[in-house]
Write a protein that binds this DNA or RNA. Structure first.
Lengths: 341, 341
DNA sequence: ACTGGCACTCGAAACTCAGGAGTGCCAACC
DNA sequence: GGTTGGCACTCCTGAGTTTCGAGTGCCAGT
């Protein structure tokens, strides 16, 4: 038996496409009817038996049609399909929808919404991580004589704020001094290098001011390394209603996972180049409960280096070519928007 | 027949409590078994017939037990129950959980999570609205010679940012000037009054600078009045899985509503005094699709005047006393946290 | 006014059964 | 040898039927 039998693969492709469209086990007869395979049902049955033997498809019960296994989907995604590109109209729609964003938060919110709408799946977008971007500006603002607000602006346009209390009134001169020194030390630096850059700042101040400066420095450092920075936006949960027929398997676990941002981060995985799509099918993802769920994700951000990850979560029987196309396209456009602003 | 029959109300209360606990129509026998009503099932049946006549309960079908109608729940909430207060331990937990927040966004995120966890329902928290708070500080930052970043900090601790492009390079002196004039004009002003306050600012600048100043002023104004400011955080969607048995009625419509923030805002309604709880039961809320859903909401913020609204959405057969207690308690603690910071 | 008794209702769950989609296998065919 | 039509077999699905029992309304008795 040849390992690579062209027609057998055609059959597998047809099975996947049919099952994705109907969500029902597909039999040999319907298969030859709907896809013009040019052979008889009996022949297809032989191929099916072989494909089942090799683990690409399975039958829910003896006298039913076949459905793809995770391995079947995997082969389909890797070898049997091409990522679908969006139409010009769709591209324009994406582009103009994202262009209307007023700030980074808005970009993320719009992206989630867009992704959910196009793919009709649950969309997940990780906020650009601080650690990978650099400091654009640090601002120190007096709110009351003893209360200062630190505002940190990153190259990704993200704003972090922290409040610092002082033991005694703070002079405006000191604030100005701080502001300029902090900016000199930090502006343009990567957040990961900020610690080193900050170390020397406090030395230049009068001993009396040292405690306050130390507090400020440590607060800033905290903001830089904050775990909470691994923020995530989720949208399109309503699309889960399309899978209401199998609530326990397809809806419940996903809904539960959506609450746990730590889980979502793991699901999305490491940010990759926007060109590279990560597809995790069924059991390939790290959570048992999501064994009937697939993830399509990719990085976004600057061309050379991904800032963060975005993607979608859906049942294994999703339309991979379209979904992958949509995820990739959205990632590209977001990257572009971020680069521009 | 006396309108106010003490025992009949006891029966209604028992029915509501039982149905909330079991989610199953409750019959006369089980009722006397579980609640010590001190009368026979036959007597209860008579009362039930009366209650049904008056529209407080209904039977799903002829030979089944009774379930409360919306009117029944309404009477229960208004007259037959007292809002449950939380235990000391719970209060401490709330307080300490919220106290760990680093900024306003974090407060909101934590509040949603907390509310969802305590009530085991879907939680909704409206971000403090700009229009009700006042300006604490305006910052103007040079990012590149031709690109400025405006940062607006409100009394609620919220930060808004906008980017402004200039036609030509901007001098540092002008920036400093702008910064101080804007702050003089705006600091402490209510956002609703900001328009008037801003009007005079541009007059003090050299004609050459006017176009830029005008752009900045209008961008700020836009930020103040931005509709998008009616932001909302949602959490606890996973709690919907508890109602999986009636997916179409209880899960699907809620899931769909959660995507539509405009709808949620309407559901939450006008912010009220933190002491006053708004309860909308079933058909009382403005959306047909949510006729099996109740909303418990209240305002939060400064004592005298609510800043925004928070609440929960759940099936009509929720545990009102506990839920109302939790919503009220959380609203109080958030208000306190916001007042402190 | 309350209670026990009783006939009645009607949905839920268990059961049965026919229909049919789909399979595997085999002999025939090209 | 790969392909095909034929055929017996499997077993799920859905419709129809029956049974069971929780719950009711009503009435006569206390």
């Amino acid at each position: 038996m040849r390992v690579l039998d062209e027609r057998k693969l055609d059959v597998l492709r047809a099975i996947v496409e049919d099952y994705v469209a109907t969500h029902e086990p597909v039999g040999s007869k319907t298969l030859v009817d709907r896809h013009n395979l040019g052979v008889s049902p009996a022949t297809v049955r032989n191929d099916m038996a072989a494909l089942e033997e090799e683990g690409y498809i399975t039958q829910p019960h003896t006298s039913a049609g076949r459905i793809p296994t995770d391995a079947g989907y995997r082969l389909f995604v890797d070898k049997l399909s091409t990522v679908k590109t969006l139409s010009q109209a769709e591209k324009r729609a994406i582009s103009s929808f994202l262009a209307g964003a007023v700030d980074l938060d808005d970009v993320v919110r719009r992206t989630v919404r867009l992704l959910a709408q196009i793919t009709r799946q649950v969309a997940i977008v990780q906020y650009p991580t601080l650690t990978r971007s650099s400091v654009r500006h640090v601002e120190v603002v007096t709110m009351t004589p003893r209360r200062l607000l630190l505002v940190l602006i990153t190259s990704a346009g993200r704003v972090e704020q922290r409040i610092v209390e002082s033991q005694e009134d703070v002079e405006e001169q000191l604030i100005a001094d701080l502001r300029s020194r902090l900016n000199t030390a930090l502006t343009g630096k990567r957040l990961t290098d900020a610690a080193t850059a900050l170390a020397s700042v406090s030395e230049n101040f009068a001993p009396a001011d040292r405690p306050l400066v130390a507090t400020i420095v440590s607060t800033l450092l905290e903001a830089f390394t904050d775990e909470g920075e691994q923020r995530i936006a989720v949208g399109g949960a309503a699309n889960l209603t399309r899978y209401g027929d199998d609530f326990e398997r397809n809806v419940k676990p996903v809904l539960e996972a959506l609450e746990e941002h730590v889980i979502l981060l793991k699901l999305l995985g490491e940010a990759t180049h926007p060109q590279t799509l990560t597809v995790r099918i069924g059991h390939e993802n790290p959570y048992e409960e999501l064994a009937t769920t697939s993830v399509v994700a990719t990085g976004y951000g600057s061309k050379s280096e991904a800032l963060a990850t975005l993607g979608i979560v859906g049942p294994t029987y999703m339309d991979y070519p379209s979904t992958m196309g949509a995820v990739r396209a959205v990632a590209r456009y977001v990257s572009q928007i971020l680069a521009d602003s």
